[in-house]
């Protein structure tokens, strides 16, 4: 018994050690990015992962010289609006399929699902032409609505599955109590699928915040650009000054990383809850 216990403990220590080593290698790109951002101009081109001493001058410079706040705001407006529309629209649709069971809703559901098999690469040209026709180039709405249309099917799949798993008696009881469809949706269905709503919100936020292809084509004016598409500009601008370039890249990557660290527990909980009924 003793030997078994201590063997388990040794195995645990070894597995942790291996995981830490793998993680150490896995984190090299991020560590390297931060490390170059913290270098003095003299060390900027050293072929080393770490250099000493470190300086925060690059961060001060890039924050002072660049309208990062405005770019951040563009990303935030587009992302928050997209997430809000996706969550509202997909939960309404999921409710109409799973609870109201409207005639024809399953056919519609299957049709909308085909969106998930459409690679964005084949959509950029037609979407670009459509947005040009609408006069929506360089506008927030020109990204928000296509993003929402592309995001709804995935959210709808998750929310519909959760609503179907909820006890039907609750919806029956709401009907008997005189709730109409809208009240049932708001007071019964949405609270029941909360973990799924949280999961869908976080995932849609990540996807929208980091979307590159469509944003590159739709946003050409510099005051409209989002955090995801400005790094190219900076790579030309700070070509001779890697310290500043990687400082600004660190700042660009930071908001979503921090947000994910804050919400990862709720995100994984939603993911695990979704898989219960394999």
């Amino acid at each position: 018994m003793m030997t078994l216990l201590s063997r388990n403990r040794i195995r645990g220590v070894v597995i942790h050690a291996v995981l830490f080593v793998v993680l150490g290698f896995w984190m090299i790109p991020q560590v390297y990015m931060l490390s170059i951002g913290l270098r003095t101009p003299a060390q900027a081109f050293d072929a080393a992962l770490f250099t000493w001493p470190v300086t925060f001058d690059n961060f001060v410079t890039v924050i002072r010289d660049n309208p990062l706040g405005g770019i951040f705001l563009n990303s935030l407006i587009i992302t928050v609006a997209t997430v809000a529309i996706v969550v509202a629209v997909s939960s309404l649709f999921a409710f109409s399929c799973a609870i109201l069971r409207l005639k024809g809703s399953m056919l519609l559901y299957t049709t909308l699902l085909t969106t998930l098999m459409v690679p964005l690469a084949s959509m950029v040209l037609p979407l670009a032409i459509l947005l040009k026709t609408f006069g929506w180039v360089n506008t927030y709405i020109g990204l928000i609505l296509p993003y929402a249309a592309l995001g709804v099917p995935f959210a709808m799949v998750i929310l519909k599955a959760f609503m179907e798993d909820a006890p039907r008696e609750l919806f029956e009881a709401a009907r008997v109590d005189g709730c109409n469809a809208w009240q049932t949706y708001w007071h019964v269905a949405l609270p029941l699928v909360r973990p799924a709503l949280v999961f869908v919100t976080i995932w849609q936020f990540i996807v929208t915040w980091n979307e590159f292809f469509l944003a590159l084509i739709v946003l050409t004016k510099s005051e409209m650009k989002t955090l995801t598409i400005v790094p190219m500009q900076y790579s030309g601008f700070y070509m001779a000054n890697p310290g500043a370039l990687f400082a600004v890249l660190t700042l660009i990557a930071l908001p979503l990383i921090l947000l994910y660290v804050l919400v990862q527990r709720a995100f994984v909980r939603g993911l695990l809850a979704g898989a219960v009924k394999g």
Binding site: S90, L92, S96, L102, T115, L130, L145, V152, A181
Partner: peptide, 21 residues
């Protein structure tokens, strides 16, 4: 009115997915 539940998703799909394709 219940068809309003399905309408927004359908509209988004028609305008920004089906029509462009």
């Amino acid at each position: 009115t219940v068809y309003l539940f399905a309408l927004p998703a359908t509209l988004l799909f028609v305008v920004f997915i089906a029509y462009p394709i």
